[in-house]
Each structure stands twice: as structure tokens, then as C-alpha cells.
């Protein structure tokens, strides 16, 4: 029992410390810039784009889609930036050389981003309510909340996959950027997945977010859990596959990096 408590304490402390130490948004100005300005302006830009194409009456579709996509902001950037920044500060070799359990290290990394992702989405939804009159009176709010939590977890799972790549390349943050914007295209954020070519749709449904966003859109219109259970279950499954793959890749690349000493490349 004591051991579990001790593990939990280590987990909590390392989670907090790595957040403060590694993220440029862990300052007041940084938070304003990257966690408020950036998400809000993303929503504004794509909503106005949508309004121009589809008229003011469709603004909500774009606002909700982009607010939900913000879960990926924390999931992808958070996890990948962790490894990338460790590399930049030269602390990656120390971390890999420490006897800490990799799974614990990795989970602590993911969990903080999940919490952060939820906070970002709340900001995004608030903006949508205030600026674009998102009306959630008839929505199934608890279910919408559940969808947001699920997507925060699943995108973090995807983040683990690409974060692992950060062990062997110094340009993981570039990959993070690309992945984030690819999700914006293929996951039904600004236009339905059905408009994409067939092959690309296959990619859409093997990525997190696609089903989650669909479920959340339905929840916002008042759907019940039963109605979206299939979508949500699929989302969880996809997230688990990515997270597991990410963990495996982490172990493989870790030993590869150790043999090649690549993690010190920067």
C-alpha cells in the first residue's frame, strides 16, 4: 500500500514539475498566447471561412468542430513537445538514464495534457457560446463532456506515437505541427469526411477525433449515450491502438537511441 502511495506521489510530482519545466506556455504570457489566443483565433478564422463559404447560418458547424479539435492541441503538442523540449534542454539522456519506470514517465506525460486539453476545449466552447451563440440548452451536456474527455485521451494516445519519434529526431515539433493540421483536414472538423477521396477516408477513420467529433456534434444536438455509443466506443478503441503502438515504439526507439546515442544529437 505504501509503495502505491509513494508511486502516486512520484507520479504527481513529476507530472507537475515536467509541466512547469518544459512548456513555454507554463508562464502567464505563454499561457495567454498559446492556450487562449491561439485556440480562440483558430476558431475565429475557420468560422469566418465557413461563413464566407456557407453563410452565417452554418457558423455553428465550424465553431463546434474547431472547438472540439482543440483537444488535439494539447494531446499532440503537449506530448510531442515534452520529448522535444527535453532534448533541447539536454535533459533527455538524464531521463533515459534514470531508473524510473518508462510507463509511469510516459503516463504522467500524457495525463497532464489530457487535463490541459479539457481546459482548452472549455475555453473554446465558451468562445463559441459567447461569439457565435452556440445554444446548448437542448444539448446533452454530460455526454458532450464525456466526448471531450475521451477525445483528449485518444489524441494524447496519438501524441505518444509521434512523441516517441522525438527520441530519435530533433525535429519532432515539426511533425507535431503537421499531424495537428492534418487532423484539421481529415477528421470532419470543417467539412464532412464524406467529401474526402475514399482512400483518405480510410485514414480519417483510423485516426482519433473523427468519430469523437461526430459523436460530440450529435451530443450537442441532444443525442443520448445509446445513440452515440458505437461512435464513442470506436473512438476509444482507435485511441487505445495508437497509445499502445506509441508505447511499443517508445521502447523500440529508446533502445535504438541508446545504441546509437542519437538522443544526444541536439
Amino acid at each position: 500500500m505504501n509503495r502505491v502511495a509513494a508511486e502516486a506521489a512520484v507520479f504527481a510530482r513529476s507530472t507537475y514539475l515536467q509541466y512547469v519545466a518544459l512548456f513555454q506556455w507554463a508562464t502567464v504570457r505563454g499561457y495567454v498566447a498559446y492556450k487562449i489566443l491561439l485556440p480562440v483565433t483558430q476558431i475565429l478564422f475557420f468560422v469566418e471561412l465557413g461563413v464566407y463559404a456557407a453563410g452565417r447560418q452554418n457558423a455553428l458547424y465550424f465553431a463546434l468542430g474547431n472547438a472540439l479539435q482543440l483537444t488535439a492541441n494539447a494531446g499532440i503538442f503537449g506530448v510531442i513537445a515534452t520529448v522535444a523540449n527535453e532534448r533541447q534542454f539536454g535533459t533527455l539522456p538524464i531521463l533515459l538514464g534514470s531508473p524510473a519506470n518508462r510507463l509511469v514517465t510516459f503516463l504522467s506525460r500524457a495525463i497532464v495534457n489530457v487535463i490541459d486539453g479539457i481546459a482548452t476545449v472549455v475555453v473554446g466552447l465558451l468562445v463559441t457560446v459567447v461569439l457565435f451563440g452556440l445554444d446548448l440548452h437542448h444539448g446533452n451536456l454530460p455526454l458532450l463532456g464525456l466526448c471531450v474527455i475521451v477525445m483528449s485521451l485518444t489524441t494524447a494516445g496519438l501524441g505518444l506515437m509521434f512523441g516517441s519519434i522525438g527520441l530519435v529526431t530533433r525535429d519532432a515539433i515539426i511533425i507535431a505541427n503537421i499531424v495537428y493540421y492534418v487532423l484539421l483536414i481529415v477528421c470532419g472538423i470543417n467539412f464532412p469526411v464524406s467529401r474526402l477521396p475514399g482512400a483518405v477516408q480510410l485514414i480519417s477513420y483510423s485516426l482519433p477525433l473523427t468519430r469523437g467529433v461526430q459523436a460530440a456534434r450529435e451530443a450537442a444536438e441532444g443525442a443520448s449515450l445509446q445513440q452515440v455509443a458505437g461512435l464513442l466506443g470506436g473512438e476509444v478503441l482507435v485511441g487505445l491502438v495508437w497509445a499502445f503502438g506509441g508505447y511499443l515504439l517508445f521502447r523500440v526507439l529508446e533502445s535504438y537511441a541508446r545504441r546509437g546515442g542519437l538522443q544526444e544529437a541536439y
Binding site: R29, A33, Y34, I36, L37, T41, L44, L49, V51
Partner: peptide
Amino acid sequence: QMLNGFELGVYVLCGFMF
């Protein structure tokens, strides 16, 4: 940092895409 965060806001104000 701030301008970086406001990036997409600039796209809106300059009318890059609409």
C-alpha cells in the same frame, strides 16, 4: 510569443482567405 499566438487572427484581419 503573443503574435505567434495571434497568428490566425492576422489571417482574419488581413483577409488572406476571405
